[in-house]
Computed example of a mutant assay.
Amino acid sequence: MTTAKRNTWQREAVREALGSSDGFISAQGLYSNLRDGGSPIGLATVYRALASLAVEGEADSLQSPEGEALYRACSTTGHHHHLICRNCGLTVEIEADAVEEWAQQVASANGFTEPQHVVDVFGLCRDCSAQARSAQASA
C-alpha cells in the first residue's frame, strides 16, 4: 500500500525552485538557490524532497560523470533517456527504441525478467563542439 506524500511548504518550495532552474541541478545547488532567496529550508529536506519527486515522476534524476545526483523538473512522462552536454548542461530528451530492445534482449539472454535501466549519454552539444574546435584551431 502506498501512502500519498504530504504537500508541505518545503516540498512545494523545492518543486518550484526545481521548475525555475535551467537544466539539471544538484541538491546542493538547489539548496543554495533556495537559501539565497531567503528560504529557511534545510539541506536534508531538499535531498528528501528531490528523491521523492524523482520517484513520483515529477523530476528527472541522473548521475553526472563525477557521480553526483542531478535533478530537473520532468517535462516528459514515462521512461525516457537524455543527451547531456558536459560543458553547458544542455539536455535533450530522446527516444531510444534500440536501447529498449537491447536491454530486453540482454536481460532475457541472461535469464532476467522485468529489466529496468537508465541511459544518459554525455557529450558536447553542437555549440560547445564548435567552440572547442575554434579554441583548438586558434591554439
Rank of each mutant, 00 (worst) to 15 (best):
F24N: 00
I94H: 05
A137T: 15
I25V: 15
N87T: 14
A13K: 00
D127L: 09
N110I: 03
D36A: 11
Y71E: 03
Q104G: 11
L70Q: 09
V121R: 01
G89E: 01
H117A: 13
H80T: 14
W9A: 04
E12N: 12
G29W: 03
S134G: 06
L53H: 00
A107R: 02
L83A: 04
D127C: 02
L70W: 01
K5Y: 11
A4T: 15
V121N: 00
G23K: 09
L43M: 05
D127V: 10
V119H: 05
S32F: 05
S134L: 06
E95C: 01
M1H: 07
R48L: 04
P115A: 10
A132R: 07
A130C: 02
G89H: 04
F24G: 00
E58L: 15
A103D: 00
D127G: 03
A54R: 06
G89W: 03
H81T: 10
A109R: 14
L50K: 02
S39G: 06
A135S: 14
D120M: 01
N7S: 00
D127N: 15
S61V: 11
F122G: 00
A139H: 10
E95Y: 09
R6Y: 06
R6Q: 04
S26D: 06
L70I: 01
H80L: 07
L43E: 03
